[in-house]
Every structure is written in structure tokens, then in C-alpha cells.
Amino acid sequence: MKTGTLDWRQLMVDFRLFGILLLMMVGLTLISDRFLTVDNLTNVLWSVCLIGIMTTGAIYAPITGGIDLSVASIAALAGIVANVLMNVYGLHWLLSIVITLLIGVLIGWVNGVVTTKFLVPAFIVTMAAKTYLFGVAMLVSNGDQITIMQPKEFLAIGVSKFLGIPIPIYIMAVLVIVSHILLKHTVFGRQCIAVGANEVSAKLSGVNPDRTRIIVYIISSVTASIAGIVMASLTQQAYAMNATGYEFDVITAIVIGGTSLMGGNGSVTGALIGAVMVGFINNGLNLLDMPSAYHPIATGIVILAALILNQGVSIPKSIQYLLSCFKPASVK
């Protein structure tokens, strides 16, 4: 009975996603001869990497029926804090990273506690956090676009390679694997899914929904901090606007990957494919020389389409429905 443990539905979703991804790549190759070049693909990879890292942790919020909108602000703040610790206070780069991650833990804990103990919806809590953390980031950085000149080890995170593959890719790969195992093969993963599926039922079965949620927001905040550190190192920049709008790319990637915002299921691998797709969509729009105003429009449409498909509405049925809107009231 090996099949009992395999999640066939999720495999189907992942497989379908992968097909769509390949189609997109073929399409982009045909449309633009600049697409299939090392330079361009490396570019896509960087943005996918940052979104991908954030996604590995941010996915737990929707799985438990919540959402984390503060990840972009957390990432920007993490870059700024790391830089201040290293270059203003002169701390060792590793220590600076550890402190930055601890601050991430604190931010996530606050998000989680306000959501669970003060019963404010996660949407509002994390939107408020997004706003005030952006403010803190502006305050700490004086609103400046600070160039990070040193230490070399810190800057190496973003640019150096191992076996010809950039370090951020390894970071993302490790986080994807860890997150996947955490979700699918641990008690904590089971508890997250149960809380999202039916909080009351989970509670009556011995799960502590509040504790689970608090940990979820801590995880989300820590991976956002990691992404912020990688981004600062990669761009050699600490800037409050560094990751502006990334939270929507992250949510798009999660939703495209088959995770329901209503909670109760989730796929880390799906979200990774989703992150790659978001990267390609943005890249494709760039290559086609579309004005930047079209980018959010395209992203928005993709989110809606993914959500509609996620509701279990089949494409032929949707088309049928759309057509029936133009007909006079049907008579049976």
C-alpha cells in the first residue's frame, strides 16, 4: 500500500504546473531571441531565488488559514540591520547575520502573538507590520540607498559560486528541501495542515492552534530575513525600498503552486514552480519591452486565474459560464 502515502492530487497539480512552465519557456524562446541566453536566465534566477527563499517560509501562513504580508518589509529591514551591525558597530559578519535572524524571530513572534492572542486577523496584523517595519527600515537607513562595500565574506554570499552554481541557489535548495520535509514529514507540518483545515477539530484532537500559528509567523519572518540578507549581499545595497512589492510575488507563487489561501493544504515544491513562473512572467514582460505599468496587470490576472483554478472550477465550465452570461435567462 505504498500509494496510500503518495499525494497523487498534488503530484498532478505539480505536473500540470511543470507543463505550463515548459510551455511558457518555449513561448518566450520563440518570441524573444534574448530569452534563452545565459545572462538573461541568470537574471531570472536571481529574482526567483529571492522569491523562492521567502516562499519556503511564507507558505505556512496560508496553510494555517492566515497570510503574511510583511515579508517584503522584513527582508528590506534585515538587509539594513545586517549592514548597520557590520559597518556601523563593526560586528563580525556571521554574528551580524545571527542577530539579524533573531530580530526576524522577534518580528514573527509579535505577528503571531497579535494574531492569536489579541484575535486581530492576520491580514491586518501583517499589513500593519509591513507598514511600520518599512518605517523602521527608513528610520535606520535614513532613507538612504546605502552601498555595502565590505566585509568581503558577506558580499561573497551573493556572488560566489560553488561547482559553478551561485551560493543563493544552494540556500534556496536547502530551504526548499527543509521546508518540504517540515511540511510533509513532521508533527509540526501535520499540525499546521490540521489548524488550517479545521481549527476547532484540530484543537479537540490535541493540537495547540495558537502555538502552531505563532511558530508559523516566526518561520515566515526568518526566511524573509534570510532573503533580505541574500538580497543585500547580491545587490551590495541596503535600502528600505529593496523588496517593495515582493509580498505579492510570494503570494502569487504560493497560490499558483496549488496552496489554498483558505488553509488546510500546501505544496512547497508547487510554490517553487510558482516562483519560477512569476520570475518568467516578469522577465517575459521585460523582454517584450512592455511598459512597466503592464507588469502588475499581468501579475494580477495570473493570481486571479490561479485562484479560480484552485477553486476546482474546470476551464470548460468557466468558459461555459462566461458564455451563458451573454445569453438571456436559460429555460429548462
Partner: peptide, 18 residues
């Protein structure tokens, strides 16, 4: 309060037996 409808029988039983 009892079931988690969107989850398999295995998952529903497993959650109380973690």
C-alpha cells in the same frame, strides 16, 4: 468540530495520534 473535510481519512485519524 469533528472532521477536517478537506483532509484524508489518514490525516484525520493521524492528528489525534501524532
Amino acid at each position: 468540530q469533528g472532521i477536517m473535510g478537506g483532509i484524508s481519512i489518514t490525516g484525520n485519524i493521524g492528528i489525534a495520534n501524532l
